[in-house]
Design a protein around this nucleic acid. Structure first.
Lengths: 142, 142
DNA sequence: TAAATATACTTGATTATTCAAGTATTAATT
DNA sequence: AATTAATACTTGAATAATCAAGTATATTTA
């Protein structure tokens, strides 16, 4: 009769806590800025990318979604003017996506809310512990 | 111009890494045992609950899903015989759910796969680090 | 004790995401 | 150069999850 080990229990804890964290962030961002946490992450990646633009496939990998998922989630974001198509890819298969001026504004406003919320969530977590989480996650084979 | 802080960056890292972890676990469990990571977590909660049964609402809270979400995810699990209705709740609003004998078998087999996979993922993470993750997550206001 | 409020759950409609298949293009192989 | 294989992306069909509304029951309040 196999019993669950410490690493598996850790995986479960990570899953549940992150789900809870995501809900908090979603609520915090959606009410005021009209975007979810994942959409925020997309804007964050774009704004930190060279030329504020990325290939859709690279974005997909960065946010752990499929190419299809990216196509589908970007379409409404494009419609409300947060992102737009970027041009001149040498490779005609590629269509790059770019954050717009509006997207940047929303991003900066949302950053404020997110910072507040994450400070609130992590009030009782020390800087050393935060550093520890980052390092440990980085050591995982993911 | 607001810039993202360390805690928000940590939240993003947690989100992305956990998404990646979940994909690995899903793949590992689905191919062999026909269940996803979340379904495994449900079985895990049930098997560790008194009488191997829980109220649906408590299950919802435990896995960070809505009551509706639990109804919907339990229905196919019931159909394939992993869980079943438990009876005698004093409160007629409540319908408790219980893991079946079949569910227990699948759970124990799946535990084996999960343990292997999580060991593989966390080979380069020390016990101290694992402990650190658990403690830090526990200190968060979630 | 009657009425108002809260809780547990389900369901219809909607949104999000995936997979499999298809298109277009590029790169590798022969 | 022609064929084969690989890559980037989109789309139809299916699955998962949410929200809002509804039902039934229990609890609180007046």
């Amino acid at each position: 009769m196999n019993t669950i080990n410490k690493n598996s229990e850790t995986a479960i804890t990570l899953w549940v806590k992150t789900a809870s964290l995501t809900r908090k962030m979603d609520a915090s961002l959606a009410s005021v800025h009209g975007i979810g946490f994942l959409e925020y992450i997309v804007l964050h990646r774009l704004i930190n990318a060279p030329g504020n633009a990325m290939r859709r496939i690279d974005l997909a990998n960065a946010i752990c979604r499929t190419a299809s998922g990216v196509t589908r989630m970007l379409s409404p974001m494009e419609k409300i003017g947060l992102v737009e198509k970027a041009d001149n890819p040498r490779d005609a298969r590629v269509s790059r996506i770019k954050i717009t001026k509006t997207g940047e504004e929303i991003y900066h406003d949302a950053t404020n809310s997110l910072n507040e919320k994450s400070n609130q969530v992590m009030t009782h977590v020390s800087e050393k512990q935060i550093e520890g989480i980052i390092v440990s996650l980085d050591h995982m084979n993911l």
